[in-house]
């Protein structure tokens, strides 16, 4: 940046103040600068700072040190939220990657009606989590939904009622979440597969390597960057998990499908326990940082060297 300012300064003998160089561009990007500094940096810093206070209904500066964090980690509801998110997260990550890649690989086999299949797999992604949650809430309804239909078919002991069974409620959410999100991953994987050289396939055919083996041994390792992108996207989505839970289960039965994002919002806006909400949201931020730092290191550290 300093490089291209040199000739300009040399041309205009007066050497105008640096602040006013390009002033229209600076003025035009004021909304961006404000967003970046005030909302993103300022807001985050504010929340972290106030997580060390005992704020309840209104933010106050009565410092309590790490009290809120101690209370957070000894709260049953928070621990359940973390456990639920862990179960949901691991299953969702693995299943979305597997389903997304498998579908993309199927579509990449030069099949007919590829466009139709792609539209079908992707359309749920256009729908909101609220719509997704409510649709699956209805399908999983124990009295009128899928369970009832399967029983009517003759399998009278069939039992699948995730919305009222605390042990499997997260899997009820998982079915809906995967339905909504796997199309996106399929799309990304398909783009990745399309970027792979046709000659690879010819080479493996000559060597007599089977299709499945080629995918596992050759194609997937080649698609590492695509997988990393998909992983980051899925992980970012998982941490945000909120609307789906509110719409589909409301956190129930009991507390059995609570998630951290919901915990934060309930404590801030319902329970009027701001400090606790701030501490919980800071923990969410930490988890994002833990996910992002290795990725950013791989991605940008590598690019600079290259």
């Amino acid at each position: 940046m300093t490089v291209d300012s040199e000739p300009l300064r040399a041309r205009s003998g007066k050497r105008p103040s640096r602040l006013f160089k390009n002033w229209m561009a600076k003025l035009a990007t004021v909304p961006m600068i404000l967003t970046a500094l005030v909302v993103f940096v300022g807001g985050t810093a504010w929340t972290i700072t106030y997580s060390f206070t005992g704020s309840r209904m209104l933010p106050k500066t009565n410092w309590v040190g790490l009290d809120q964090y101690e209370r957070l980690w000894s709260s049953d509801r928070w621990m359940i939220s973390i456990k639920n998110l862990g179960i949901y997260g691991i299953c969702s990550l693995v299943l979305t990657l597997v389903i997304g890649f498998t579908l993309a690989a199927c579509l990449d086999r030069k099949i007919r009606f590829e466009g139709v299949f792609r539209s079908i797999f992707l359309y749920p992604f256009a729908l909101s989590f609220v719509v997704t949650g409510l649709a699956w809430q209805w399908i999983l309804n124990p009295d009128f939904g899928m369970q009832n239909v399967v029983r009517d078919w003759g399998w009278t002991t069939f039992n699948f009622d995730p919305l009222n069974n605390p042990d499997i409620v997260m899997f009820g959410l998982l079915i809906a979440g995967i339905w909504q999100g796997s199309g996106l991953i399929m799309c990304i994987m398909l783009a990745g597969l399309r970027g792979i050289d046709e000659d690879i396939w010819k080479a493996t055919k000559v060597d007599g390597i089977g299709t499945v083996k080629t995918y596992v041994m050759v194609i997937i390792p080649m698609m590492r960057p695509v997988f990393v992108t998909a992983l980051v996207l899925i992980a970012a989505g998982i941490i945000k998990l909120y609307d789906l839970v509110v719409a589909q289960t409301g956190g129930g039965p009991g507390l059995s499908s609570e998630v951290p994002a919901k915990y934060v919002i309930e404590l801030m806006f319902r329970a009027q326990n701001l400090g606790q909400g701030f501490a919980a949201s800071t923990m969410m931020l930490c988890s994002v940082v833990i996910i992002l730092i290795p990725w950013a290191y791989l991605e940008f550290g590598g690019r600079k060297r290259g």
């Binding site: 961006m32 970046a36 909302v39 993103f40 994002a261 949201s281």
Partner: peptide
Amino acid sequence: SFFTILIIGAFIPYQTMLYPI
């Protein structure tokens, strides 16, 4: 730098910024 902050901001969970807003 502002742009980088903006992009990093896209990854911050919304929950951290809800109350300041």
